[in-house]
Design a protein around this nucleic acid. Structure first.
Length: 869
DNA sequence: GAGTTTGAAACT
DNA sequence: CAGTTTCAAACTC
């Protein structure tokens, strides 16, 4: 309800006249209309935005819808984190815009409105999420997966994604961005003069992540400045003063952007800026800004500087780039802080907070470093997670609920924890962090491809060990030097993982060091000896890092990749399971004695289920056993094979049915787990696991879209690489991480052009499904799957029943590949047919039901397909 | 807090 | 690539 209006309003906001019209839901048409154009031209801002928006989309390559969905998902996460109820809202807002097809326009309208109507924005932001959730469910569902996918797909986009809400805003803001970027540059320069450290940091990051930063900044800048400025009002002004004066305008922008991106945060009030800020994390600039802002916030908003743990997590959340940024940032910060450590600390915390927000943005993306993930979880409540895990199902069950709020919680919890420092909050943080980390991981995995996503990882990295410890340490240290260690320990104990490192021989210049591994400089909180990971030794640190990267380019990349981030939200159980399930460790663990039940296991530490890539013995990973994962893959592969055979026998109809099933499964699976497994399960009618997974995929609607997209991509792939389906498990999995991202990217790319995953591996298709967020594929899929999906649409039910493992089973990559190939093989045929059917993607697709229905009533599906044909 | 266990990272 | 060593976190007492 609200979302539409806001969006419309926003679109019109640029022009007062248009606002009314836009509010009436004319945004798209109006915008297109010559009159609107004229109006836009009248207002200086609009034209820029429009252009920028266009660029942003163009850059994305994918249609606005695609981005939106992902972004939405991202928003969801953030929203969820902040508000369980609102979890869907944020996304919904986005999704609606996407659905409406006015996403960009609406976004602009929203931004404009926000600018013009700060109060409205706040209300809208807080409210919109709900509305969106309701309206967008399907979209959101699809979106939820997409976000992660999107993150993977396009880092640059991810930046936008981060802003989630900003998505739309971004579009609008995009235009602003250019101006903003310029303004930022100017500001940066100004900041340099005034605030050397922060600005310097920003500058450095910019050089590295200039693209991302620019994107993010632009979005942030635009929205934040306008929207937040309005919202925050006096606070904002004060912040701006501080920011502008001492820090770069980027900070301000970041804050604004953060708020915008996380309406909830904004809704939460500036008090929680620190909380919200984490989401902003994406950019170093933001971080820096956050720091500055944090100071301000601290003074103004009551935010506790102690949020360190969260901060650390946030920091961990950032990506590689972020990590790098962190390093640079730290340097700058340290430099600047040299005199004002307290500020730095506060900043670090704030930055961390921002990082958390990034995690929020993560949702869309997923790749994360284990470190980041771990850090994230531990930071808030690694112990909690561990407890949950130890508790087993209970823990999981509890998670589901939590999972729903994961994203939001991540940001919120981090905030809360920071503020309150309560165990409860910590638990939330853990969950959120894990989720975020998962998403981040998934995103990160892609992030390797995409630079932006990386930012999230850094936070994640901190979240667990590295990030949390280092970040938390850093932040804590900064905030509370004396208590940093204790806090760290306590945090780590609590799961905060804010501890600093204790390296004695590695000089903190090896991956052994969590700080170094997380791309963070060691701080006061660290108990390391002969530490070489300090700003003073920046050159050495950089060299070492380069050396390590030369050996292993992904050494600093997130270890954990998520397939699906948000989907689980609907099902508490599923969620808890799913979040972990969706995420996987790229390399897998090699546990021999811990049985993957202790933090020795990186998978467990990251709250991720073991996959075929793991070489663990006697895996009992609470988040998903390796065996289960493998079994799922196997079944999925079998199903795919059978489906392929069937396809060969019966062309279109039969294939269609299976395709639908597989697609639904894939789509669903992607949400929670990996796309692949779901499909397999679905395809195999009988396979309960698949069903359960699919059920978990309830979010399916969105997943459906993604599936459809995946199917579509799979088709393409299958056309090219029909056979490939089968191979890949471990390798695939490893690849998957990248691929998924790539897939996501592919989706984006699809919009833009190339699909990595397509060519890369069959698996990618699944990823694509997950990514589906990409408008085109998504649309196609929708069209294709619609009937089937519609039939099965509601099915999601079973999802809950699914074991987390299933979700995780996602290894699906192989499955996806297979499925995709099979489906793709058939997909080409059936796929097109489906397209002809053009079933509405949104409505129906419930994974389980679909899968079941499809599987059970293949005839029906086939009949439907025939009818359609 | 010290010592042990564990598995990743690094090395050969 | 496999095996071994090194390392630091996680864990236990």
């Amino acid at each position: 309800m609200d979302s539409p209006e806001p969006s419309n309003i926003k679109t019109t906001s640029s022009s007062s006249l248009s606002t009314l019209n836009a509010s009436s839901s004319q945004s798209p048409q109006l915008q297109e209309s010559p009159f609107l154009r004229f109006v836009n031209t009248l207002s200086p801002i609009k034209p820029i935005k429009a252009t920028h928006v266009v660029h942003g989309f163009l850059g994305l390559n994918s249609p606005p819808l695609v981005f939106k969905s992902p972004r939405i998902s991202g928003l969801r996460e953030t929203q969820y984190l902040e508000r369980p109820q609102g979890t869907h809202l944020s996304d919904g807002g986005i999704s609606q815009s996407d659905i409406g097809g006015n996403s960009i326009v609406e976004a602009r309208g929203r931004l404009e409105k926000l600018k013009t109507q700060q109060p409205l924005l706040e209300g809208f932001i807080t409210d919109t999420p709900k509305d969106f959730d309701i309206n967008i469910d399907a979209n959101t569902q699809s979106c939820s997966p997409p976000p992660s996918v999107d993150k993977y797909l396009a880092d640059p986009e991810d930046d936008q994604m981060y802003s989630v809400n900003p998505e739309m805003e971004q579009s609008t803001d995009a235009a602003v961005e250019s101006s903003l970027t310029e303004s930022k540059k100017v500001i940066l320069k100004f900041d340099k003069e005034h605030g050397p450290s922060n600005r310097a940091e920003e500058l450095l990051p910019l050089s590295e992540e200039s693209n991302m930063v620019h994107q993010e900044r632009a979005a942030y800048v635009e929205e934040p400045a306008n929207v937040e400025g309005e919202r925050n009002g006096a606070e904002w002004i004060s912040q701006e003063h501080t920011v502008l004066d001492s820090s770069s305008g980027a900070d301000v922008f970041d804050q604004h952007h953060y708020h915008d991106s996380h309406p909830q945060c904004a809704g939460n009030d500036q008090r929680h800026h620190s909380d919200c800020t984490p989401q902003l994390m994406p950019d170093h600039n933001q971080v820096v800004k956050e720091f500055e802002n944090c100071n301000e916030m601290v003074s103004t908003s009551q935010v506790n500087s102690e949020n360190i743990p969260q901060d650390g997590s946030e920091a961990s959340l950032k990506y590689h780039s972020i990590r790098r940024r962190c390093l640079q940032f730290e340097e700058a910060a340290s430099i600047d802080l040299g005199g004002t450590k307290s500020h730095v600390k506060s900043n670090a915390t704030s930055s961390n907070m921002k990082m958390v927000p990034v995690t929020g943005s993560k949702p869309p993306g997923i790749g994360l470093h284990l470190n980041s993930i771990i850090n994230a979880m531990p930071a808030s409540g690694a112990s909690t997670t561990a407890v949950r895990l130890s508790n087993g199902l209970q823990g999981i069950k509890s998670k589901p609920t939590i999972s729903l709020h994961k994203v939001e919680n991540v940001t919120q919890s981090s905030i809360l924890s920071n503020i309150d420092g309560q165990s409860v909050i910590d638990a939330r943080n853990e969950i959120h962090e894990t989720d975020a980390s998962v998403a981040a991981d998934s995103f990160i995995s892609e992030s390797s491809i995409l630079t932006e996503p990386i930012a999230l990882y850094p936070e994640n990295a901190h979240d667990k060990r590295r990030l949390s410890p280092t970040d938390t340490e850093n932040t804590e240290e900064f905030n509370h030097p004396s208590t940093s260690k204790k806090k760290k320990k306590t945090i780590t104990d609590d799961g905060g993982g804010s501890k600093g490192c204790h390296c004695k021989k590695s000089k903190c210049l090896k991956l052994y060091c969590d700080c170094f591994g997380a791309g963070i400089y060691c701080g006061e909180g660290c108990a390391c000896q002969s530490c070489g990971n300090r700003i003073e030794f920046e050159e050495k640190v950089v060299e070492t890092k380069q050396h390590i990267e030369s050996r292993n380019p992904n050494a600093f990349a997130p270890k954990i990749v998520q397939c699906v981030a948000d989907v689980p939200l609907n099902n508490m159980e599923d969620v808890s399971m799913t979040t972990p399930a969706s995420a996987r460790h790229k390399r897998g663990c090699n546990c021999k004695r811990s049985k993957c039940t202790k933090k020795y296991c990186e998978c467990f530490q990251a709250n991720v289920g073991c996959s075929s890539g793991c070489r663990c013995d006697g895996c009992k990973n609470v988040f998903g056993k390796k065996e289960d994962y493998v079994a799922i893959e196997h079944t999925s592969s079998i199903e795919t094979e059978s489906s392929i055979i069937e396809e060969g026998l019966d062309d279109k109809l039969y294939n269609r049915q299976k395709m639908v099933v597989s697609r639904t499964g894939l789509l669903r699976a992607p949400n929670h787990l990996s796309p692949l497994t779901p499909s397999l399960q679905c395809s195999d009618q009988g396979k309960q696991a698949a069903k359960s997974r699919l059920a978990s995929a309830n979010w399916t609607k969105s997943s459906k879209k993604s599936r459809s997209s995946l199917a579509h991509t799979a088709r393409n792939d299958s056309q090219k690489n029909a056979p490939p389906c089968v191979s890949l498990k471990e390798n695939e999995w490893t690849d998957i991480v990248p691929y998924q991202p790539s897939n996501v990217c592919g989706i984006r790319q699809l919009s833009g052009g190339s699909l990595r995953w397509h060519s890369s591996s069959p698996i990618t298709p699944s990823a694509n499904f997950g990514d589906e967020s990409n408008g085109k594929l998504f649309d196609i899929l929708e069209d294709e799957t619609p009937d089937v999906l519609k039939e099965t649409s509601t099915p999601i039910k079973s999802v809950k029943a699914n074991s987390p493992i299933h979700k995780r089973v996602s290894p699906p990559q192989s499955h996806l590949l297979r499925i995709g190939s099979s489906s793709s093989g058939g997909g080409l045929r059936s796929g097109r047919k489906f397209i002809l059917q053009s079933v509405p993607s949104f409505p129906p697709l419930t994974p389980c039901a679909d899968s079941k229905v499809n599987c059970n009533s293949n005839e029906d599906s086939s009949n439907n397909a025939k009818k359609v044909a």
